[in-house]
Amino acid sequence: MEPIITVRHLSKKYGDKVVLKDINLDIYPGQIIGYIGPNGAGKSTTVKILTGIIQDYSGEVMVMGKSLRENIMEVKSKVGYIPELADIYDLLTPAEYLAFIGKLYHLADNVVEERSRRMLTSFGLMENINQRMDSFSKGMKQKVLITSGLLHNPSIVILDEPLSGLDANAVILVKELLQALKQEGKTIFYCSHMMDVVEKVSDRIVLIDQGAIIADGTITELRAGGNDSLEQIFSRLTSGGDQVQVADDLAAAMR
């Protein structure tokens, strides 16, 4: 099978600071990729490159066999992006915001209306569809963002901490949604700090630290015959597993 996303020698610098170092990845259609790493590891930068938000990078990114650099608009129309923070024009209502997004994807009004209604109903937001979002909780805004990222029925869905601010039921709903999208044949690139969720939903996990990939494989492969949870593996690979000592030091500092 041909990879749907191919990343070769991807590097990115902000001034003198190297954020990504020679990243190589092949992502196959219908996979859920869990992309994890500590704060500042380069996850969000990778996501912004894959979604075309950052265009100043070195290396090559191919999406559906086409160069991202040379076919950026075509790629953007195939990708749905759901960012980490609920940065949204919250003076608008969900209806107005989704209509605005629909226009930017050149979707017909009736398609936007139908999809918005169905998705917001699933999220339990239908009764809020004509309320300004400045009174919404972070979780409610996040649900609108998820809806906006899926509105154009993308082949690839890139999520950067999509569960941030969501309540327990909504988290379950999103987990199920990821599985449903996978069943539909979508490719999911999923960044998160919630290790238990990543462990459960991902077909493959890529661990990044200090701009470089330090582990890549299924959860079974990452365990390497052991019985560790993803959280333990993550801790061991990114901080030497000394969290217990750090916690003890913190508690001792209060005495």
């Binding site: 209502t93 209806a95 989704l98 209509a99 629909g102 226009k103 009004d109 009736n110 936007v112 209306e113 918005s116 209604r117 239908m126 809020n128 569809i129 004509n130 309320q131 300004r132 400045d134 009174s135």
Partner: peptide, 14 residues
């Protein structure tokens, strides 16, 4: 919650 005056019908656009 501050419902906006227009579009109480739940219309998304148009």
């Amino acid at each position: 919650y501050k419902p906006v005056a227009a579009g109480k019908s739940g219309k998304v656009s148009g």
